[in-house]
């Protein structure tokens, strides 16, 4: 296996919409292609990959292509280690939040044994019988948003390294922009994260903030951009306070991260120079190299 001393579980998070990516001269297909190219390289280097969010719907082409990529590009040594009774040896992990997790059929799970492990995440604290019954659309949205938060926390706990790029800014399904929440979950656990800012979206807003120590918090990274009147009307006062407190905590975590990457000390196992380079790089080839380097650094730690 070339690359890291040990194979990592690398979380890849990307997305976006054409209208938000247009200002950078790219579209959704650029984001998707980078996902496939990144997956090829990391799998060939012997790592496993996890992904979630909208990719949790097996009907989506990108999920299907990532799975095909895993089948074709798996490093031979890693492939030899796959044990069909041990999902932790399979190359892919897909996290999907309720209710989308319910769409994954038994047939799909069976066909992908040894390739992709599917982990469904329910909203915390909601009994199964409630989730199994029909709900008002607003209630369903609230459950989904909470499930998304739980999913991002779970993937952050499981993964050794997270790499993010693109990402929707406005109109995300969850309580906030997905990339922002994923970065925050990862930082809270003091785990390494690489923000690729060259591909627009939420990651670009974060990158602009991170690269400039004097920059103000991006005005678009707030709860209002993901507001949903019907869903938000169901929030209790306590829940609303918790959400606002979370947002403040997130800003603090990212600000602390910014300070750290402008020092010379390793940040959660990554060199600050690699993190800073990733913020600005726009070239596919270069970001894939940076990602591979980052995985190597984390693996060697």
């Amino acid at each position: 296996m070339r690359g890291a001393k040990r194979g990592l579980l690398v979380a890849l998070s990307a997305g976006g919409v054409n209208s938000e990516l247009a200002a950078h001269g790219i579209g959704v297909e650029h984001v998707e292609e980078l996902m496939v190219r990144m997956a090829m390289r990391l799998l060939a280097d012997g790592h496993r990959l996890c992904f979630g969010g909208t990719l949790g719907d097996p009907g989506k082409d990108l999920t299907k292509y990532l799975i095909e990529t895993a089948e074709k590009w798996l490093d031979d040594k890693a492939a030899a280690k796959v044990d069909v009774t041990k999902p932790e040896t399979w190359p892919l992990v897909n996290y999907s939040a309720w209710p989308h997790s319910r769409k994954i059929t038994e047939d799909q799970r069976a066909r992908l044994v040894g390739i992709c492990q599917f982990i469904g995440i329910d909203p915390p604290g909601i009994p199964q019988n409630v989730l199994d019954s029909d709900a008002e659309p607003a209630v369903e949205k609230k459950h989904n948003s909470n499930a998304l938060t739980a999913m991002r926390d779970r993937s952050a706990r499981d993964a050794d390294l997270r790499i993010v790029w693109g990402g929707r800014v406005t109109g995300a399904s969850g309580w906030m922009a997905g990339i922002l929440e994923e970065v925050a979950c990862t930082l809270k656990l003091k785990k390494p994260v690489l923000v690729l800012g060259g591909f627009g979206g939420c990651a670009r807003l974060l990158a602009d903030f991170l690269i400039d120590p004097s920059a103000s918090w991006p005005s678009q990274l707030n709860l209002a951009e993901s507001a949903d009147a019907d869903r938000d009307a169901l929030l209790t006062d306590s829940e609303r306070e918790q959400l606002n407190a979370r947002m403040i905590e997130i800003q603090k975590l990212v600000t602390q991260f910014r300070t750290a990457i402008h020092s010379e000390e390793s940040v959660n196992g990554l060199s600050p120079s690699v993190i800073r380079s990733a913020l600005l790089e726009e070239n596919n080839r270069s970001v894939i190299s940076l990602a591979a380097d980052a995985a190597k650094q984390v693996g060697a730690a």
């Binding site: 054409n18 247009a22 001269g25 297909e29 082409d61 990108l62 292509y65």
Partner: peptide
């Protein structure tokens, strides 16, 4: 149409087994 040109010149990038790099395609929409 822009996406169709991207798919064509990027040689079916989504198939995951294309080792050949196609031609770079960019958009200008703003």
């Amino acid at each position: 149409l822009a996406k169709s040109l991207y798919d064509w010149f990027r040689l079916g990038y989504l198939s995951g087994d294309q080792s050949g790099a196609g031609l770079p395609v960019y958009y200008r929409r703003t």
